[in-house]
Simulated assay, not measured.
Amino acid sequence: MAPFLSLSVIFLLLQFPFLSLSTNPEGNALHDLRSRLSDPNNVLQSWDPTLVNPCTWFHVTCNSNNHVIRLDLGNANVSGTLGPELGQLHHLQYLELYKNDLRGKIPKELGNLKTLISMDLYDNKFEGKIPKSFGKLKSLKFPAAKQQ
C-alpha cells in the first residue's frame, strides 16, 4: 500500500504544482506579494515559489542563514497593493519600494518588522495615514515615506 500512496502523492504534485509551493514562510510571503503586483517589465520573473527559499531570486538579499534581509524593488515599475504578508519577513532590514505605482493603505503589519533599518516607500500612491504600528520600529534609522 505504501508504494501506491507514494505514487498518488507524486501524481497529485504533478497535476497540481501549486501544492508544491515552498514551505518557507518568507518565500510564501514574497510570493503572496508578487500575486498582488502587476509586473510589466518582468522584474519578478525569477520569483519561483517551488524553490526551497527565495535567496536566489532577483531583488531579494538573504543573510548567511538564508533569511530575507533586503527587498529592493525601488523604481521597478510595479503596481498594485501591499498586503499583511510583508509583516512575515521578520529578519528584513531594508525595504526599498520607492518610485512605483503602489496604492492602497500601508499595511500595519510592517510595524512587526523589528529589525528594519531602512524603509523607502516614497513616490507611490498610498492613501490613508502612516500606521501607528510604525512606532514599534525601534531599529528604523532611515524612514522615507512621503504622504500625499
Rank of each mutant, 00 (worst) to 15 (best):
M1T: 10
P3L: 05
P3M: 01
P3K: 02
L5M: 05
S6N: 09
L7G: 11
S8M: 13
F16Q: 01
F18K: 10
F18E: 14
L19K: 06
S20K: 05
S22P: 15
N24W: 02
G27S: 13
N28P: 00
A29F: 06
A29L: 05
H31A: 14
H31E: 10
S35G: 04
S35F: 01
S35V: 04
R36I: 00
S38V: 13
P40G: 05
P40H: 04
N42H: 13
N42Q: 11
N42K: 07
S46H: 08
D48N: 15
D48H: 04
T50V: 00
L51A: 12
V52W: 02
T56Q: 14
H59P: 12
N63L: 01
N63P: 06
N65S: 14
N66M: 07
H67P: 05
I69Q: 10
R70Q: 15
R70A: 15
R70C: 06
G74M: 05
A76G: 15
A76W: 15
A76R: 14
N77T: 09
N77R: 11
S79Q: 13
S79F: 01
T81C: 02
L82M: 10
P84V: 00
L86I: 06
Q88A: 14
Q88V: 03
L89D: 12
L89I: 07
H90E: 10
L92D: 02
L95F: 02
E96Y: 00
L97I: 06
Y98T: 07
K99M: 09
N100S: 10
N100Y: 05
R103S: 15
R103Q: 15
R103Y: 04
G104R: 08
P107A: 06
P107G: 07
L110A: 08
K114W: 04
L116F: 05
S118C: 08
M119E: 09
D120P: 00
L121N: 10
L121F: 04
D123A: 14
K125H: 15
F126C: 11
I130E: 01
I130W: 01
I130D: 01
P131W: 02
K132R: 13
G135P: 04
G135F: 03
G135T: 13
K136P: 08
L137E: 09
S139L: 01
S139E: 12
L140R: 05
L140K: 06
L140M: 09
K141R: 15
K141D: 11
F142D: 05
A144L: 12
